[in-house]
Simulated scan of single mutants.
Amino acid sequence: MAKLWAGRFSKTTDETVNDFNSSIPFDNRLYAQDIRGSLAHSDMLARQGIITREDREAIHQGLTEILAAMDAGEIGFDPAQYEDIHMCVEQLLTEKIGDAGKRLHTGRSRNDQVALDMRMYVREEAGHIHDQVLHLIDVITDVAQNNTETIMPGYTHLQRAQPVTFAYILLAYVSMLKRDARRLENTLEVLDECPLGSGALAGTTYPLDRHFTAETLGFSRPCDNAMDGV
């Protein structure tokens, strides 16, 4: 397993160290986001003339095949082989298409790659949860509308207090869920900045088009500050 951080070591590292540093048992769930980010990045690199069109075609073909294999469960995420999902995809791509796979990393750092994958994953999950919360609000509201005259005791400090309707109790949870929905909406707004192109912390000298990659990946804009982005 290739390790970016092990260049100065002359001996094989202990397996305990490998286990501690390996994140692929957890971040393998980011594979689709990692590949989509790489597809957009290679598109931009070719568009800017940083890599050739031939390299771009080879990268896209290789990444598409890797994505299909991962979707089908044909690739194992073994910590003994891969340290993280980013190195896993890069290693598989290079094995498949050769040096063109290494050129995919041009103008990109592991820092902005990880930040992008995390934002894309959380954005998709938060959007899905937001939809479920709104659906739950609709369901509870429907039940409440059918129980506007269903009398129930209201409790405080585990003791019966005032008589209320079942609808009133249900709508209390609707109010709570509406706050949750607003929190998720705020999260989605905060996540709507693309960190790709930030590099390690302060960008790169390559003529990247960060607005192109942001738009391609469904973000409204790139991050204002690269250090903040990563």
Rank of each mutant, 00 (worst) to 15 (best):
E65M: 06
Q48D: 11
E57A: 15
E83T: 03
T94W: 01
H60G: 15
C88D: 01
T94Q: 13
L67K: 14
E65Q: 14
E54L: 11
A58T: 06
D71P: 05
V89R: 01
A80S: 11
H86K: 08
G73M: 09
G76Q: 12
Q91L: 05
A68Q: 14
A100Y: 04
R47N: 14
A100H: 09
G73A: 09
I51L: 10
Q48G: 09
H86S: 08
G62Q: 08
E83D: 10
I50R: 05
Q91H: 08
G62T: 09
H105D: 07
G73I: 10
L67M: 14
G76A: 14
I97P: 09
K102Y: 02
H105Y: 08
M87C: 00
L104A: 01
A69N: 12
D99G: 00
A68V: 10
M70W: 12
G62K: 13
G98W: 03
A68E: 14
V89G: 02
A58Y: 04
Q81F: 04
L93S: 06
D55W: 02
Q81M: 08
L67H: 13
I75F: 00
E83W: 10
H60K: 13
G62N: 11
D78H: 06
H86F: 05
I50G: 07
L92D: 03
I51M: 07
A100M: 07
E83G: 04
D71K: 14
G98M: 05
I97A: 07
A100W: 01
A72S: 12
T94S: 11
F77W: 12
E90A: 10
G62L: 12
T52D: 01
A69C: 03
G76R: 13
E57T: 12
Y82K: 05
L92F: 10
A80F: 00
G49I: 13
C88F: 00
M87Y: 00
R103Y: 03
T106E: 02
M87R: 00
Q61N: 13
I85T: 02
F77L: 01
V89D: 00
K96I: 00
D84V: 04
I50L: 11
K102W: 07
M87E: 00
I51Y: 04
A80N: 09
G62P: 12
I85C: 03
H60P: 02
C88Q: 11
